[in-house]
Design a protein around this nucleic acid. Sequence first.
DNA 1: ACCTGAACACCGTTCAAGT
DNA 2: ACCTGAACACCGTTCAAGT
Lengths: 215, 215
Amino acid sequence: MQSVMTEAVALLDEAGEPALTFRALASRLGTGVGSIYWYVASKDELLDRAADHVMADVLVAVEKLPAAADPIDSMRAIAVALFAAVADRPWLGAYFMRDTGTQPNALKVYELIGQQVQRLDLTRRERFHAASAVIGYVIGIAADLGQQPPQEVVDGTASRDDVLDRWADQWRALDREEFPFLHEIADEFAGHDDAEQFRAGLDLLLAGLRLQSGR
Amino acid sequence: MQSVMTEAVALLDEAGEPALTFRALASRLGTGVGSIYWYVASKDELLDRAADHVMADVLVAVEKLPAAADPIDSMRAIAVALFAAVADRPWLGAYFMRDTGTQPNALKVYELIGQQVQRLDLTRRERFHAASAVIGYVIGIAADLGQQPPQEVVDGTASRDDVLDRWADQWRALDREEFPFLHEIADEFAGHDDAEQFRAGLDLLLAGLRLQSGR
DNA sequence: ACCTGAACACCGTTCAAGT
DNA sequence: ACCTGAACACCGTTCAAGT
C-alpha cells in the first residue's frame, strides 16, 4: 500500500496526471494491473489517496510552524506552506482538497486554519466563511499553477520566462483602446513571480479579515 | 462550427465532462467522428472553445451591468456574475480561464475587472496583483463547485442538503479535542448557501483592496 | 489474503478515401 | 472545402483463475 502511493506520486511528479496509468504503475511495482485494485477502488480514489499522501508531509510542516502570537499571521504561514507544496508539485493543484472524505490530511489542514480563525472575535458563521475563503483562494491560485505547463517547457526547449514574454507580447498586440488594462500590466506580467503574486492576494484577503475581526 | 459548440455545451450541461465524447458529439450532429476534427484540433481545444462559447454570454451580461460609481462595487458585481455562471454550469469551473489564448471572452472579462482596478489609486504592480487575486478567488470557489456532484445527487436519489448533512455528521463524529473547529462549524456547514459563502469571502478580499487603495 | 493477465468496453486521434 | 468511418493505440475496469 505504502509503495503503491510512493510510486503513484513518483509518476505524477515526473510527468503529471497523464503519466499515472494503471499499467505504468503496475509495471513500476512489478505486478499486474489488477492487483492495484486490491488497494484502490478506482482511478479517482488513486488520485485522492496520492494527493493525501503528499499532504501528510505538508501537514507535518504545518504543525511544525512556530505558533505566532497573532492568529492571522499563523493563517498566512499555513497558506504559504500550502502554496509551496503546490508550487513543488503542480499536479497537486487539481486534486488536493477534492474530497476531504478520502483526504483526511487535507481535512486536518482545513481544521488547523479553522483553529486560527477561532482565535478571532467573530461569529460562528463569519468563522466558517473566513476559513473557507482562505482555502478557496489557495485552491484557486494552486489550480492556476497546476495547469499542465506548455509542452515546450516540459521539453526544456523554452523557459517559463520565454512563455510569459510571449503572452505579454500577445497582450501588447491587442487594441490599446479596448484593452487598456492588459497593456498596462503586460510588463508586470512578464517575469512575474507566482509566489509573490500569491502572497499579495493573500494579504488583501487577510487584511479584510483583520478589519472584520477588529484587530 | 456554431452548432458544434452548441451541442458540445448541451452535452456538458446534461452530464458533465464525461458525457462529452467525440462519438457522442458526432452522433448528436448526425456526422462522423472525424469531421469534428475539421473544426477543432483536440479534445482540449474543444473544451476550451466550449467554455469560451459560454463565456460569451457571461461577457454580454457583464457589459450590461450598470457602471457603479465605486470601482470596487463594480468589481463585486462582475465577480458575482461570474460565480452565477459557474453555479449554473458546474463543469465550467474546471475549464474557464484555463487558456485565455484560446478563450478570448475570458480574457476580456479579466480586462474588465482590470479596468475597474485601474480606477483605484494603486501602483501598477498592485493593480496586477489585485485583478489576479479576484480572478484567482473566483476560480477557486468555482472549481470547488465544479467537482462532479456525488452520483446520488445526479440520480436524484439524494438532495444536496442530504449530502451536506452527512458531511456534517461525519465531522461531528470526529474527536472533539482534535477537531474543535469542524465541530463548531458543522451546523453552519449543513445547509449553507454556496452563493452566500462566495460573497462573504469576496467581501473580505475587496475590503482588503479598499483599505489598500485608501478609499 | 493477495496477485495475475487476458478480455471488455470505451476513449481520442489518424488517415485514406470520398464528395 | 468539408465529410466519412474503419483502424489504431491506449485507457480504466472486471473477473475467472491462481497462490
